[in-house]
């Protein structure tokens, strides 16, 4: 408002008055379903979770749980399970690097080089999502099986020892994460790269930039929004995932998701499970906001 205050008024007429009544309320009415949804399925559960994380840790199911502001649950949970926390971010981070190395060229190829194969390639990226997440992960058990050809080949070329294996190692978990969440990275990136203005690439070449310089100075910065969106869509679920660690790893590869699962369902330690969930959420948000802040992401938010 203040920016325009110094401008002379164009005409002497007063600005048009907004019509009173329904129309002013309309935007809010339109917001209502979404807001109600968010309140019911996001805000309420979150408050419930935060409350549960402050229950008295010595309460049991038969006596019931009472909220006693037991903030000690947080340090206790973190102290008991910090290795799993570290592992979650380490594995998700490694998987992200792998996924970027594979996903960026893939998205670029589909968006810019595929020609008439574009739709087919897109279907190929999306098609695995039509089968269940569990089935896809279980398929990796067969692929990486000790007696399978992948491990056989790696043993033959001495990348693995004669008794070496891939299943039940961190490698298998990271590969599983990479595979399962790759489409979440590729699709936003593809959507972004597809809109890439090729005249800018030509201009770059006209200015004697070589291919690498063009990529580094033009394509990459322009694709940043897609890259950030893809990274977030990949990283957030990958950090919280527990299926891959459960099926492809061993207890030594368990991530924080496995711990939360066991806290809620097996050990019935609701305060600890809730505290861990909130800690995971906080840690993920910290990473996400750090990421957004660095990238300058008005386009995303």
């Amino acid at each position: 408002m203040s920016a325009f205050a110094h401008l002379p008024s164009v005409s002497g007429q007063p600005p048009p008055v907004a019509r009173p009544g329904r129309h002013r309320l309309l935007p809010y009415l339109l917001l209502l379903p979404g807001a109600a949804w968010l309140f019911l399925f996001f805000a309420l559960p979150l408050v419930q979770l935060a409350t549960a994380s402050l229950y008295d840790p010595n309460d049991t199911l038969s006596t019931g749980y009472t909220m006693t502001w037991a903030f000690g649950n947080y340090p206790a949970a973190l102290q008991a399970y910090w290795p799993q926390f570290g592992r979650s971010f380490l594995y998700a981070g490694s998987a992200l690097v792998l996924a970027l190395l594979m996903g960026y060229p893939l998205a670029y190829a589909i968006a810019c080089k595929a020609g008439r194969w574009k739709n087919l390639l897109l279907v190929c990226v999306v098609a695995p999502m039509f089968t269940s997440f569990l089935v896809r992960t279980l398929a990796w058990k067969t692929i990486l099986s000790d007696n399978g050809w992948v491990v056989g080949l790696l043993r033959d070329v001495h990348l693995l020892g004669p008794d070496g294996r891939l299943l039940a190692t961190p490698v298998a978990v990271v590969l599983g994460l990479t595979y399962n969440f790759l489409p979440f990275l590729v699709l936003p990136l593809y959507a972004n790269l597809e809109r890439l203005d090729h005249r800018l690439l030509e201009a770059s070449r006209d200015l004697y930039a070589n291919a690498w310089q063009t990529f580094r100075r033009v394509t990459l910065p322009l694709s940043m929004p897609g890259l950030i969106a893809g990274t977030l869509l990949f990283f957030i679920p990958a950090t919280g995932d527990y299926i891959n660690a459960e099926l492809l790893g061993t207890p030594n590869e368990y991530m924080i998701g496995n711990v939360i699962d066991s806290a809620f369902l097996v050990r019935l330690d609701y305060p600890q499970g809730a505290a861990l969930s909130l800690l995971l959420m906080a840690a993920t948000l910290a990473v996400v906001f750090g990421c957004l802040r660095r990238a300058g992401a008005e386009e995303l938010l």
Binding site: Q48, T51, L54, Y55, L61, T63, G64, Y65
Partner: peptide, 19 residues
């Protein structure tokens, strides 16, 4: 705000005895 939310939540929530 969060503390107020939690306080109202905490007053109303908790899990009753399952026994």
């Amino acid at each position: 705000g969060v503390a107020a939310l939690l306080a109202t939540g905490g007053a109303g929530c908790g899990i009753p005895a399952a026994q």
